[in-house]
Amino acid sequence: MTTRAVIVHGTGGHPDVIWYPWLADRLAARGWTVSRPHFPELNVTPVAEFLPSALERMAIDADTVLIGHSGGAALLLAVLEAIEVRVPQAVLVAGYATPPNASPEPVLRASYDWERIAAHVDDLVLINSVTDPYGCDWRQGMAIRDRVGGTLVVRDDGHFGDAGQPYDEFPLLDRLIAR
């Protein structure tokens, strides 16, 4: 039975903004242990340098559901490639695997071992939008899904929260997380 969740914020984000605390409270009410690590170095430090400390702070085991938003979702691709366990579910919200815009993206790897990523997750859910202002749109979700499998959910909800888009609750995400 899944009892743990790790929620990873996006680039320049914080674990106490948008829907992250709301989702943590929802999962905790189900009896889950939830962590929301703060990664100020996310998408600042190259992923190869940052990943070992991120993995240590996440303490992932076979009962952990991984949830990432934007740069946090991109980080979870590297995490799934690196871990030695199979997690029951990973949910990538506004995730991407290639540069979504002209900004530097040190969170991305030059290439991924897609088979290894697929081997480390039972249920991959991708939630992307047709109107993502940063380019983390449905095309990015489809490209990941085409390589790894999983379920792609396409909405018309911008970036699912950031400084210019309040998104304090995310009921769809709560419904999609393994129970």
Rank of each mutant, 00 (worst) to 15 (best):
A5D: 06
P15H: 07
W19S: 11
W19G: 07
L23C: 05
A24Y: 05
D25S: 14
S35G: 06
P40H: 14
E49V: 08
L51R: 08
L51P: 12
P52T: 14
S53F: 10
D61E: 09
T64F: 01
L66S: 05
G68C: 03
G68T: 03
G68Y: 04
A74G: 04
E81V: 07
I83H: 10
I83K: 12
L92D: 07
A94N: 05
A97K: 00
T98E: 13
P99H: 07
P99Y: 00
P100Y: 00
A102T: 12
R109F: 03
R109W: 00
A110N: 02
D113R: 09
D113G: 05
W114R: 05
A118Q: 02
A119R: 11
I127T: 12
V130N: 10
T131K: 05
D132R: 10
D132N: 09
P133H: 09
G135Q: 01
W138R: 15
I144S: 08
T151V: 10
D156A: 14
D162W: 11
A163K: 09
P166R: 14
D168R: 12
D168I: 00
E169W: 11
E169T: 15
P171K: 04
L172D: 15
L173K: 07
D174G: 09
R175T: 15
R175G: 10
I177F: 10
A178E: 02
R179Y: 02
